[in-house]
Write a protein that binds this DNA or RNA. Structure first.
Lengths: 334, 334
DNA sequence: TTTATTATTGAAAGCGCTTTCAAGTAAAGG
DNA sequence: CCTTTACTTGAAAGCGCTTTCAATAATAAA
């Protein structure tokens, strides 16, 4: 790999000059500029971004911490971030936290040690305190899907509790009184919030909530299936299930059929997130739209504006969960 | 951020010694080792991996090029890679190629310029020639989901054509004679191969293949829906559809119902990939298992073994597409 | 005790680039 | 034609770490 040194030699100019034409950071005469550009071309020169990063203390990279690399939710989120950053030739380096404190910490340390210019963080288990402290460091951070009052201006989130409340209310309005909940892992904040929203709507309607009517799933298909197994084994009587995400809903619907219960007809199913597949299920999933892709985009826009000083027209976006009515919640009264 | 220099000062030793205790690269007396470790702790020292990378010419990072960051396929792939690399404290930096030559090239350039120790590449549009040349550079590359004879030892792939052949054959065996195909974007190699496999099985069974019986989709749900719209508009008579991936299949199934055609009963649907949701659809999707996660893992294992010299027990893995029979392809003869 | 080994250290030269700082040049003003 | 001002350049000092190389200290062998 050719270095800037060889370029400068071939072009007959100093390192500094080569650097200048690369970065357009100062005036260079047309003549020398052409010489340098020719030399770069002849050598097939590609700047070494590690060296750039070390010398300049920026990396044109923003670090992303997600829980895992697969799954629709994180896929959409990463996609949203990437789509914005790429436009401005910024890159992302991604680490996974796996719901494990050590990994989340290590991930952040790694990203910082790679000189990331900013961090976009989806942390599950890191404490508020840690994140608050982190926000005071010299790497700007933006937090997705979580609300920390002390650093609210760095948080892009959505009211999970209200979303879940909306979801549950919709089911109740449709005439259901025996409604169960499949939650996400309880150590996750969003899962907790969604449980609260569920309970809130139930209480408000004067409906009983028994802890055994809430099953703790894993936010995956298998969690939905496991929930149904559990509910059936408990011989619970129910006509509807509010699920904490669409994956759970899909898993539950499939398992329900194994018990000859037809989702959408005998059992109402409510999802959450409105993942891309939600309108392709059968029955089509009634759910709560969680615009995670847009939220990712917004985070990226903030970075672009705050860190890279790229003029961004940031829409006055406040994210609200909204109900998306499809076919999986039948109206009992009809 | 504390630097190694401050550590050395506080500990009263030289830079070299600090470096030695960090890397265990040479003997250091117990006494000085403790001094250094204490100094590091006191300062909250975190090594700067950019500097390490520049000085040592390795980064403990492997670069990944995928088409996009969302979608189950790439999610599974990245997850497979990550799960292996993380075990050995190696990191990944991911770029997206977006099916665009420029982006794929730029992605690879970026990864190389970041001193990635190896590259795992899922390239759509880059030419074989380019990849062959790339493989001769000093960054080892591994290629996923593609077979290039000249550098076969670097390719981890699976016989798409045979998979599609299997799929189509299964449908035919079930008694279907009017079978359509929804393909992926034709510029994609895997889509082409799957088309060929489809035709091969059809010819072999003496069944006619009309080009208008093949719809070029986008590998997404919407492609499946668009295909159905097209087929219906063409007033084609058909009892089965072989889809080039599961997303297309799901999209097609949903759209089919809009036309009051029941997938799995009136119309047989065959998927491809066996994505995690395939057993949660209704009807459950009969498909071809494409073990992309395992293939990602294998690529990571190769990197670990070849580049990082970590003893890996690499299973004698040859990846074969296999038929997964579920409920979406009814047997006409019964 | 002396010499031969071996284990511990530090000095210093990079890695490939950025970025002052100052010097050299050309253009402009009087 | 001589200053003054504005451009263009190059030299050199880092950025934070690794890695030779040589020197010193500790230990073993003779």
């Amino acid at each position: 790999m050719a270095t800037i040194y060889e370029v400068s030699k071939l072009a007959g100019v100093s390192l500094a000059t080569v650097s200048r034409v690369m970065n357009k950071t100062a005036n260079v005469s047309q003549k020398t500029k052409l010489k340098v550009e020719k030399a770069m071309l002849d050598l097939g020169y590609k700047p070494n971004s590690v060296a750039i990063s070390l010398a300049s203390k920026r990396s044109d990279c923003v670090g992303i911490l997600v829980t895992q690399l697969d799954g629709m939710f994180f896929g959409s989120m990463m996609n949203g971030i990437e789509s914005e950053l790429t436009k401005q030739r910024k890159h992302l380096v991604i680490t996974a936290g796996h719901n494990v404190e050590h990994d989340e910490r290590a991930g952040i340390d790694f990203l910082k040690s790679r000189n990331c210019d900013a961090l976009i963080i989806h942390a599950e288990v890191l404490s508020d305190e840690y994140l608050i402290e982190l926000s005071q460091g010299d790497t700007p951070i933006y937090i997705l899907n979580r609300h920390i009052p002390e650093i609210a201006e760095r948080c892009i989130h959505l009211d999970n509790q209200y979303g879940s409340y909306l979801a549950t209310k919709h089911v109740i309005k449709a005439g259901h009184t025996e409604v169960l909940h499949i939650s996400g892992p309880r150590y996750r904040k969003d899962a907790q919030e969604r449980i609260i929203g569920f309970k809130q709507a139930m209480y408000e309607a004067g409906l009983p909530v028994n802890e055994s009517h809430i099953f703790e799933g894993d936010y995956g298909h298998s969690g939905g299936a496991a929930a149904i197994d559990y509910f059936m084994q408990q011989r619970l009587s129910f006509t509807s299930i509010v699920c904490a995400n669409d994956h759970l809903a899909v898993g539950a619907m499939a398992r329900l059929r194994d018990f000859d219960k037809i989702p959408g007809e005998q059992i109402a199913i409510m999802g959450f997130d409105d993942m891309p597949f939600a309108d392709c299920t059968y029955p089509k999933l009634t759910t709560i739209r969680y615009p995670i892709r847009e939220m990712g985009k917004l985070a990226a826009d903030y970075v672009l504006k705050d860190v890279y000083k790229v003029q961004q027209k940031i829409p006055p976006s406040s994210f609200e969960p909204t109900l998306v009515i499809r076919d999986s919640v039948l109206n009992l009264s009809k």
